[in-house]
């Protein structure tokens, strides 16, 4: 696709290129749309705070081997339960004498791993089920939605527990269990969105061009559902991390000695009255990542809300 009309505008600088009223190419139009969203997002201070916290945690996870002061797995029983700051241990040591700061850094990797996997699996599943149900209607809708209701009828943690118990403990199974329990709300959202979109004129118009249901769902309905799902997922992230931590706490998530934050709290529980930091510091980590996702979700809602997009 060459664009003969595209006069090079680079001389005006990339900003002018991005804010041009008359985009000259597909890429420019898309970039401009993203840039506009970014401008709107940036004006939301709290969301930016969330994004910065999150970026900070991601950087910590990526550079954990460089940032860590100790090996997170090496035990030193002679040096156990040291308070924060003592002997080069920034956040102190746990009941087996492991450096909490280093474990926290490596634990971030596990948390982000869980979050990413769940964020990919659950909404995708929900999106597929919800849009098919919403677009097809009739008995397909009834069957799929009753199936969804069954999953919704169980408390999430209990259902996840049951799955993990059946599949065996471990991070991957924990992710699978959480995803399997997390998708129904997404299916509901996607279906509700689809129902309103399905009867709009722009869907009628593509139907009149002979487009089939698969094309309509994936090309025309998904792009409009995804924004509300992304918002919901970021807002749910906190809950997902807490569920993962909860599974870890109950010993059904990451297995010792891996430094999963929930498992770390579980270990520190026994000492919480005398050695508060062992449980509190991973708790604070969970708190900050949850908060970051919540703030981010609020900001994304402002950017992505279709009602706002029309200005």
């Amino acid at each position: 696709m060459t664009q003969p009309t595209a006069k090079p505008q680079e001389t005006l600088g990339w900003r002018a290129w991005l804010t041009a009223d008359v985009p000259a190419s597909r890429a420019q139009a898309r970039a401009a749309a993203w840039f506009n969203g970014w401008l709107r997002f940036r004006s939301n201070t709290l969301a930016m705070v969330g994004l910065i916290i999150l970026l900070f945690i991601i950087l910590c996870a990526v550079f954990a081997p460089l940032l860590a002061t100790h090996d997170p797995f090496v035990q030193n029983l002679g040096n156990r339960l040291q308070p924060p700051g003592a002997d080069g241990h920034i956040f102190g040591t746990d009941s087996l004498g492991r450096d909490i700061y280093s474990r926290l850094l490596f634990g971030a990797r596990i948390s982000i791993y869980i979050v990413l996997l769940v964020a990919l699996v659950a909404p995708l599943l929900g999106l597929i089920v919800g849009t098919i149900a919403g677009y097809a209607g009739g008995w397909v809708d009834v069957t799929l939605m009753r199936f969804t209701d069954i999953f919704l009828a169980f408390p999430r943690l209990i259902l996840a527990l049951a799955f993990v118990a059946a599949l065996g403990a471990g991070i991957e199974n924990a992710v699978l269990a959480i995803s399997l329990t997390a998708w129904p709300p997404y299916a509901r959202i996607a279906r509700a969105e689809t129902l309103t979109i399905r009867n709009s004129d722009f869907i009628h118009a593509v139907r009149l061009q002979g487009a089939g249901p698969v094309r309509i769902i994936t090309r025309h309905i998904w792009p409009l559902c995804i924004s509300s799902l992304v918002i919901r997922v970021t807002l749910d992230m906190a809950g997902i991390i807490l569920t993962a931590a909860g599974l870890g706490f109950l010993g059904l998530g990451a297995q010792p000695p891996s430094p999963e934050w929930g498992a770390m709290i579980a270990e520190g529980r026994k000492y919480i009255l005398d050695y508060w930091w062992v449980a509190t510091i991973p708790g604070l980590a969970i708190f900050s990542i949850s908060l970051a996702f919540n703030l981010l979700g609020d900001g994304l809602r402002d950017v992505l809300d279709p009602k706002e997009a029309g200005r």
Partner: peptide, 26 residues
């Protein structure tokens, strides 16, 4: 067919180019 409300008959997330190209390809 041409629909009544031009505000509702175009996909809000698709450029003019995308709308027309898709139809032509179809």
């Amino acid at each position: 067919m041409v629909f009544q409300d031009p505000y509702a008959s175009l996909h809000p997330r698709m450029t003019v180019d995308q709308v027309l190209s898709e139809v032509l390809k179809l």
